[in-house]
């Protein structure tokens, strides 16, 4: 029971991180970045390929690689598409996502690459008669710390205020001196850092990395930001969290029917979009404007 709740919370936290990563970029440029999935994947590949290094070094390396990939993505592709119709950006990010998957396949092969990363993670911790795996405890703690850090960053730093302002109205924010290029690049860096964390959490649970490793997570995180409210960052995180918790609970409760948990989630997206096109936390019909 404790394990179930802890699993639900840590999965919820992981999805919240992923949704936040997508939401940050959506906020500053109204882009749904499908290729976020490939950021998660490259983070996981980096961890697997640098497995012989000490875990912290390997992880730091993966953070650097992933955020660099995110910045390059913005610089080479998305910067040129700024201000294009959202549909065009959506297709472009879909295309970029496919492109990178193929590149990974060419570099690392279509079959999963695996390595045992931090084997002590799968050990169990017992106290007061309940046992939980180290991995889920660490994931839970890590996501809580990260979410608190993000909260601090968004609410208490100048960067966070600029980010929130730019998400609400980029044009006016620029008139006040917010540097568009810097801010967008930084949003991509942060999105990359979050992807690195998400990738690390995923790879500990399932160290079989293949070219489409980050795909499921990204699609569900996308569901999360739609549920929570795509133009609000707290909404994105909340939506992601809800998706993670629901998915985890569905998987436990549905038994054999758990293979359909995605369908239930997607159905929820339909209904929420119909009732509130801007998501649960939105104030108006912000999607219309997009």
């Amino acid at each position: 029971m404790i394990q179930t709740i802890l699993n639900a919370l840590s999965l919820g936290g992981t999805y919240a991180l992923a949704s936040l990563g997508l939401g940050l970029v959506f906020g500053v440029m109204r882009l749904v970045n499908f290729a976020y999935s490939e950021l998660i994947t490259i983070a996981a590949y980096t961890l697997v390929m640098t497995n012989q290094l000490p875990i912290m070094v390997s992880f730091l390396f993966s953070v650097v690689v992933t955020s660099l990939a995110a910045v390059l993505m913005e610089l080479l592709i998305y910067r040129r598409l700024r201000g294009a119709a959202p549909a065009i950006m959506l297709v472009a990010s879909f295309g970029l996502s496919k492109l990178l998957q193929q590149v990974y396949e060419l570099c690392f092969g279509a079959l999963p690459r695996s390595a045992s990363i931090a084997p002590w993670m799968s050990g169990e911790l017992k106290f007061a008669g309940v046992s939980i795996t180290n991995a889920s405890l660490i994931t839970a703690i890590l996501t809580i710390v990260l979410l608190l850090a993000m909260r601090y960053l968004l609410n208490k730093t100048s960067f966070g205020i600029q980010l929130k302002a730019a998400s609400a109205d980029f044009r006016t924010a620029r008139l006040l001196g917010v540097r568009a290029n810097h801010l967008i690049s930084l949003a991509f860096v942060m999105s990359g850092v979050l992807a690195a964390f998400v990738g690390a959490i995923l790879v500990v649970g399932n160290p079989q990395v293949e070219p489409m490793f980050g795909m499921n997570m990204t699609i569900l995180a996308l569901v999360g930001i739609v549920i929570g409210g795509i133009s609000s960052l707290p909404g994105s995180a909340l939506g992601g969290f809800i998706v993670g918790v629901i998915l985890s609970l569905l998987n436990t409760w549905l038994g054999n029917g758990r293979v359909y948990s995605y369908s239930w989630l997607f159905a929820a997206v339909f209904i929420i979009l119909l009732v509130r096109p801007g998501g649960l936390l939105s104030k108006g019909q912000e999607m219309e404007r997009v």
Partner: peptide
């Protein structure tokens, strides 16, 4: 639905 909401909803349809 319009715009992005429509795009994502069609994605959900494919998923289901």
């Amino acid at each position: 639905l319009n715009g992005l909401a429509a795009g994502i909803a069609t994605f959900a349809l494919l998923g289901i």
